[in-house]
Amino acid sequence: MNTKSQMLCAWCGPAAIVLFMVGFWFIAGLVPPPSPHDTALQVVAIYHHHTNLKRLGLVVVMMAGAMTAPFVASISTQMKRIEGQYSPLSYTQLGLGMIGVLLFIIPAFMFEAALFRPDRAPSLVLALSDLAWLPFIGAFMPAFFQNLAIAASCFQDTEERVFPRWLGYFNVWVAIAFVPGILINFLHGGPFAWNGVFCFWLPLSVFGVWFFVMFWALRRGILAQAAEAVPAAAL
């Protein structure tokens, strides 16, 4: 049994989300996001303000992104207990979750490029800034199918041996809550812009809550697995 390593990987989830918030919100100061309405000069002014802190905060964001990998792996490990040897859902979750790591790192490097030479032509800074914000907020598609894969495996677990069934419904809800993110590509202001209630604050909250709910379920699953293993070992 590898209860300890599974538990360690599971703990990486809440740790990653806390680290992400600290890096993005408190060190880089990018929450709340600047408005998509901002002109090139306004955007340049943002990157001129506390430039080094922003650079540092985004490095923390990238570390946090990479730290989600063990968490994703531990979800797949538990999903495999439901599916058995042939486990497409578990692999789907794993693959999409690992792409999720890049969805922290690639946009964060776009920010870093904007911050690297904030004195370049303002229109270029604006372009880099857009390149960072749009995927950072809008690239929910891997998470969408990842959540559905988790949901599908919860529904397969008819005896609720690993995950409770409501976790499946919860994951479907999370997937659907991400969908309005489509709208950030179309709108520059209001609740459906990348800094709006519906496309920033709601997904950010849902995303944060998802980590803690999944962590709770993982911990429960891992402990149940350990408990199942004990009588077998005693024989």
């Binding site: 069934r165 409501w166 976790l167 419904y169 919860f170 809800w173 659907i176 809550a177 519906f198 709601l202």
Partner: peptide
Amino acid sequence: GELGTWVFILGDMTVFALLFGI
């Protein structure tokens, strides 16, 4: 239904309540 259905339905209705408020 089952408990999970209500997690989903109430979650979804919360999102809609937010939309209506906006």
